[in-house]
């Protein structure tokens, strides 16, 4: 069984990650991308299907990022070997014999709601269930704000924030006076659900508020959705979805989507979206200076006021590779 001591939290965890919007790669194009501390080649065939594979040809090591698309396959620029969407070589010029070893590792991927999701793992085990984000294709939700930013932090630092209630009034003291973790449970599909009550300061809005936030992870630790009610205005529900994708062990791509309950009023939709996005972005900026320089201690000294840091680590351990 995986224990906290046996896993390496400094490595990249397994899971489904967003590598960008669908517009990242156009039909018939090939690109080189850098995620998970390594290079990959991504291409979109004429049938619009996306394939992501390791970058060097199994033959004589040419970089496939300079290849071209031929009949939904990627053709190596050096000797013309053609790879299909499963990473198998299906054509070699001037011969009909294809060696059995002629195949490359591909990353499972899905394209949903205009985002490209990729499954990354250190071993060859099958992917964990794909996270279904229901609100993204529901008409009664209005999402207009999508922001992608590169942040200098490890994925672990950001994920631990889920259970670290004690940092809220200290780091986010501009608008949080008190935070309390009401529940912290593991749900079906191994997702984590936390309920948090945050008391805002008076200056944050025209009066102090108590906001109940429900946080839930989706398919690993790379995605978390939070749901809360906006106050003071005509009451409305807000969803904030954050995807974090490691570029390497110290930096990551953060994709933030804010969706509000559709008020059938474009101005109100815009206003709620704008305010919520600004607040979430403000909290990320406040945290990022800490994430940048922090180290992960194997044996942290914890106080009674801390959140469920150890249970959170225990849950997170399942996604991390073992220490060597």
């Amino acid at each position: 069984m995986t224990t906290i001591k046996s896993v390496d939290f400094n490595k990249i965890p397994k899971g489904w990650f967003v590598i960008g919007k669908s517009s990242l790669i156009k039909k018939g194009n090939v690109k080189t991308i850098h995620y998970f501390d390594q290079e990959f080649v991504i291409y979109r065939g004429k049938n619009r299907e996306i394939t992501i594979l390791t970058p060097h040809c199994v033959h004589l090591g040419a970089h496939l990022g300079d290849g071209v698309i031929v009949n939904n396959c990627l053709r190596c620029p050096f000797h013309g070997w053609e790879y299909n969407s499963q990473g198998q070589v299906i054509k070699i010029p001037f011969t009909n014999t294809i060696p059995r070893r002629a195949r490359k590792k591909t990353l499972p991927n899905k394209e949903i709601n205009g985002f490209i999701f990729v499954y990354f793992t250190h071993d060859n085990e099958p992917p964990i269930p794909f996270p279904i984000v229901s609100f993204l294709n529901q008409p009664h939700w209005k999402y207009s704000h999508v922001r992608e930013s590169i942040i200098d932090a490890s994925i672990y630092s950001i994920s631990e924030n889920l259970g670290d209630k004690a940092h809220f009034p200290v780091v986010h003291d501009t608008f949080v006076s008190h935070a309390q973790l009401d529940s912290f449970i593991t749900e079906e599909n191994n997702n984590l659900k936390a309920k948090l009550s945050v008391s805002t300061k008076k200056g944050f809005c025209w009066r102090a508020q108590n906001i109940e936030i429900t946080l839930k992870t989706l398919g690993g630790i790379s995605a978390a959705i939070s749901q809360f009610h906006l106050f003071s205005f005509p009451s409305t529900s807000v969803h904030a979805l954050i995807f974090i994708t490691p570029i390497d062990s110290t930096s990551l791509l953060m994709t933030k989507i804010v969706a509000v309950e559709n008020k059938k009023n474009n101005f109100l939709n815009f206003l709620y979206n704008f305010i919520t996005s600004r607040v979430i972005w403000q909290t990320i900026i406040e945290d990022s200076s800490i994430w940048e320089k922090r180290i992960v201690l194997d044996h942290p000294v914890l106080s009674s006021d801390d959140g469920p840091i150890i249970p959170l680590r225990k849950w997170m351990a399942q996604f991390y590779p073992l220490k060597k």
């Binding site: 199994v58 970089h63 060696p99």
Partner: peptide
Amino acid sequence: KREITHQPV
């Protein structure tokens, strides 16, 4: 950009 592979196919 080439990588010399140990055991080329």
